[in-house]
């Protein structure tokens, strides 16, 4: 969007004003995430910059909140729980969701719209309603306050993301490739592993990442159905924010921002790989 040579003066001014507005909005988007990073190194137990920090006095900075985090058994236990629950529910959701997506993308799938709407519903129903419903249901079948209960609940919440991303990948999948593989003498198993799987993998992996982050970031359902033993990171943060507000939360938040940067990079690499494999030229 370079300024065309015929632009009037007013347009030139507007061009820079518009860029300025956009820069401010980007600052609104990203600034809050960046601001917690220096705050998490605060030597004082405050949520704001101290005098020493502003004058770049080394005494104003410390790693005490990180130390707090890595030596607290509650936080470490919460991380462990989050990973156990996140990984288990991601595996379940990815396997079930991918198999279902294969069926959904078939031309002959009956009642496709209805089934799709049903599979997407956990994403649409407000979390508090899902949480209340699961609370009653899991209590009745004695799965409340168990790992299995939380894992199954998170599987349900993660499924829509897997279904959406994998069906999207499959819809751009060129089925003539399968016929081509057959005609070149590959048997179905070989075709699946050598042709279908490499092309579909990026979609499956990004669906899995979505499912994982959904579980990893989920508070409401865990709040309702988990017991004290299944305390996850988000729950620990939630109670931290509500009860004893301490900058340890900012240290955790910084670590989580780094995690999301890693996830985002992975996704971007997957997208590029997917484009390359499909022969789409990246921009």
């Amino acid at each position: 969007m370079a300024i065309p040579s015929y632009a009037t003066r007013g347009e030139r001014i507007w061009y820079y004003v518009f860029r300025g507005i956009c820069a401010l909005i980007f600052l609104f988007l990203i600034g809050p995430l960046l601001i917690i990073i220096p705050l998490s190194f605060n030597a004082q137990p405050y949520f704001t910059f101290s005098q020493e920090m502003l004058t770049f006095d080394p005494a104003g900075y410390s790693l005490r909140w990180y130390q707090d985090f890595f030596t607290s058994s509650r936080w470490l236990n919460a991380i462990k729980n989050s990973f156990i629950i996140g990984i288990a529910s991601t595996i379940l959701a990815t396997v079930l969701g991918t198999i279902a997506a294969l069926g959904l993308s078939s031309r002959h799938m009956p009642a496709r719209g209805l089934v799709m709407a049903l599979l997407i519903s956990p994403m649409i129903v407000p979390l508090i309603i899902s949480a209340a419903a699961m609370f009653f249901f899991f209590s009745r079948i004695n799965l409340a306050q168990t790992y299995l209960g939380v894992i199954l609940a998170h599987t349900a919440l993660g499924i829509p993301f897997v279904v959406i991303t994998v069906t999207a990948t499959l819809s751009s999948f060129d089925t003539t490739l399968i016929r081509a593989a057959h005609s070149l003498g590959a048997n179905p198993t070989r075709t699946f592993f050598k042709v279908v799987l490499p092309l579909v993998t990026p979609g499956v992996v990004s669906g899995a990442l979505f499912a994982f982050i959904t579980s990893f970031d989920e508070v409401v359902v865990v709040l309702f159905i988990a017991g004290p033993e299944q305390r996850t990171m988000p729950i620990q943060m939630w109670s931290g924010i509500r009860e004893q507000i301490s900058p340890t939360i900012l240290a955790v938040a910084t670590l989580l921002v780094l995690l999301s940067m890693m996830m985002l990079t992975t996704l971007e690499l997957l997208r590029r790989r997917g484009e390359r494999l499909r022969g789409v030229t990246p921009g």
């Binding site: 988007l29 990203i30 809050p32 995430l33 917690i36 982050i213 990893f216 970031d217 508070v219 988000p234 943060m237 939630w238 924010i241 938040a253 989580l256 921002v257 999301s260 940067m261 996830m263 985002l264």
Partner: peptide, 9 residues
């Protein structure tokens, strides 16, 4: 990036 960052963060 904000989209992928934890809601609680």
């Amino acid at each position: 990036l904000p989209f992928w960052t934890s809601l609680l963060v």
